[in-house]
């Protein structure tokens, strides 16, 4: 269980130590390697600005949402670049034509919400409930994101 009964005055230093690495992975999947650090630092800045006013019971979820929200803020101006960055992530050892190019493009073309859910379901193996808490949405919304992500990913098969 990741819920906490009441808000805790936790230091940003501790939060960074506990969560920065996993948030960096999440942010990289969201926006690609170039902007990941900016997104994560922004998320912590957002936490520092609002923690005393917000009824925060789950700082991990708070940080994940802050990352997602920051990515949405920047989406308009940077989405194309993120899609290019994500599609271009290919192991450097590969010297042949990338056989996964279509799948990479399909993953890169997902919306932020869809890519978040795909990451949590298929990489982190999180339950629907945990994903709903982290993203601050209902299980139904998680299912909708996943269904649409899957619909979009299937095109890689065709």
């Amino acid at each position: 269980m990741i819920e906490i009964e009441q808000s805790l005055p936790m230091s940003l230093e501790t939060l960074w130590r506990d969560y920065a690495d996993q948030l960096m992975r999440f942010a990289t999947v969201l926006v690609g390697p170039s902007d990941a650090a900016d997104i994560v630092v922004d998320a912590f800045m957002a936490v520092s600005r609002t923690a005393t006013d917000a009824f925060v019971v789950n700082e991990r979820a708070y940080l994940y949402r802050a990352c997602t929200n920051r990515a949405h803020d920047l989406r308009r101006s940077r989405e194309r670049r993120w899609a290019r960055d994500l599609a271009a992530v290919v192991p450097s050892s590969s010297e042949q034509l990338d056989p996964l190019v279509d799948v990479r493009r399909a993953v890169a073309a997902l919306s932020l919400g869809q890519r978040s859910v795909v990451y949590f379901v298929y990489w982190e193996d999180l339950t629907e409930r945990s994903i709903a808490e982290l993203l601050g949405v209902s299980p139904g919304t998680v299912r909708r994101h996943l269904a649409r992500a899957q619909a979009n990913l299937r095109k890689a098969l065709t």
């Binding site: 990289t28 690609g32 390697p33 990941a36 992530v89 799948v103 993953v107 990451y119 298929y122």
Partner: peptide, 14 residues
Amino acid sequence: DVHQVLADIVASTP
């Protein structure tokens, strides 16, 4: 393939 793509992206985490 999807796993591999996610693995590649995660591996690229700065």
